[in-house]
Write a protein that binds this DNA or RNA. Structure first.
Length: 407
RNA sequence: GGGGGAAUUCCAGAGUGGCCAAAUGGGCCAGACUGUAAAUCUGGUGGCUCUGCCUUCGCAGGUUCGAAUCCUGCUUCCCCCA
């Protein structure tokens, strides 16, 4: 096995990495591997707790991919056992635990998605249940004897919860221990993860030393902020771009992102050289954002699709042309009286408003309009002449084409 | 095992007998402004046959002319002591 020069590897690998502990050791490990021709074993663990992999997850995954491209060995750990515990990291509450069955379904799905970023054909994929399920209680006790409670409580998340008098369950305390033990089992040289993983990464080093093994390096990638530009990207916050989403959906979401986060997105989500990024950001923000979006999207969709999504956004959103596809909604003929229907009622039967009260609100606030010219509907009881093909708008984005059905 | 505290509308969190569909903030929706970005500003945010009416404040009963607010039981959660 041969590798590119160490300096070159370092330049690529340290981009967009927030913290490397211990910082000096990465170079040493790379030098060693270059000399011996032995690839580094790069570990990344994921707990199959949800289903949607989003761009936030891709930050460490992309890093794995870079390691792979340099010739190193990716080791993906499916935390089917740790998922039963729930990672307390960064949490101010105990996570809900999952059943075995859920975990297994999720795991399969996860790999499908992860495969879009990491080259799974060259990666080792292991389940940590393989070793944890084989451990006896005595083994667990033995493992626990390496960790002190005081140590656990130095973690910020636990310390905070402890101070706030919130519950910390014993099984949660075991989580970092398990994660660290994974590193021992796979003989990790490098572990990737978010900054909140620091404690587990360090614990892994302790356990590895205890087993007379080389100690791993922790590489921590920053938390990617979500579409709101403030909070971390996450499913529960609803501010994420999933990698399974359509090109156009991703496009729309990218264009909503606050300008201020663009640099971070470029750095963490693309390979565009940083000087080039600076040049882009010096230009019009909208163009920079389009470039960003196209680059990222083309990682998950064929690039003609990414281009098409960008064009479509320009046409429909930027230039306010009518969308190419307007969903058609059937108005039941029985709801009409002499071809007409009160405006508020129309919003309800078309499903654009869940309730009549909501419909009235929308209308009174000027959010409802008709036709290509978007003529505003003034009052909730305005009779609307429903003709097939009539456009009905709610707000700026939602529009449907009406047709009349038999009932 | 003993003691204490809490459950409110999407979330956080006020409200302790009528002025409460319930303050305030967040989120969300709509409008203005824009690059349909962000920020900002305005309005809204249970339902309905809508100047009024109906159903909500953990659950079930009760007191009262009247209860989110008082009483009883139940459920759930948290904390402390051991």
């Amino acid at each position: 096995m041969s590798f590119p020069p160490v300096e070159e590897q370092l330049a690529l690998l340290t981009r967009g990495v927030e913290k490397i502990v211990p910082a000096e050791e990465l170079r040493r490990k790379l030098e060693q591997s270059l000399r011996s021709g032995r690839p580094l074993r790069v570990k990344y663990g994921i707990d199959p707790t949800g289903i949607d992999v989003h761009l936030g997850h891709t930050v460490p995954l992309r890093k794995i991919r870079q390691f792979q491209e340099l010739g190193h060995q990716a080791v993906i750990i499916i935390g089917n056992y740790t998922a039963l515990v729930g990672d307390p990291s960064g949490r101010d509450q105990t996570r809900a635990r999952l059943t075995q069955e859920q975990v297994e379904n999720n795991a399969r799905d996860y790999l499908n998605q992860v495969g879009k970023v990491v080259d799974l054909s060259r990666a080792e994929v292991v389940h940590n249940g393989d070793w944890f399920s084989a451990m006896s209680f005595l083994d667990v006790l033995e493992l626990c004897s390496k960790v002190t409670v005081a140590q656990l409580l130095t973690r910020e998340d636990f310390a905070k919860r402890y101070a706030a008098e919130q519950a910390i369950f014993l099984h949660e305390c075991l989580y970092p221990v398990m994660q660290a033990w994974d590193s021992v089992k796979v003989r990790a040289d490098v572990e990737l993860g978010g900054t909140e993983q620091l404690y587990s990464f360090m614990l892994a080093r302790d356990l590895q030393r205890d087993q007379n093994m080389p100690q791993q390096i922790g590489m921590m990638t920053p938390i990617l902020v979500g579409l709101d530009g403030v909070r971390r990207m996450g499913k529960s916050l609803g501010n994420y771009i999933g990698i399974g989403e359509s090109a156009y959906d991703m496009m729309k979401k990218f264009m909503q992102v606050p300008d201020a986060v663009m640099r971070m997105y470029f750095e963490l989500l693309t390979d565009i050289p940083l000087p080039e990024v600076d040049r882009l950001l010096a230009g019009h923000p909208k163009d920079a954002k389009l470039t960003l979006a196209r680059h990222v999207i083309s990682g998950y969709h064929p690039s003609p699709e990414a281009d098409e999504a960008a064009d479509r956004w320009q046409r429909e959103i930027s230039q306010k042309e009518l969308p190419a596809e307007i969903p058609e909604v059937v108005v039941p003929g029985t709801a009409l009286e002499q071809g007409r229907i009160p405006a508020a009622r129309l919003l309800q039967v078309t499903g654009l408003s869940p309730s009549s009260s909501e419909a009235r609100r929308l209308i009174s606030q000027g959010g409802v309009s008709l036709g290509e010219d978007k003529v505003r509907v003034e009052t909730h009881d305005t009779p609307i002449d429903v003709t097939p093909g009539l456009l009905l708008w709610v707000g700026k984005k939602r529009v449907v084409r009406l047709s009349i059905g038999p009932n």
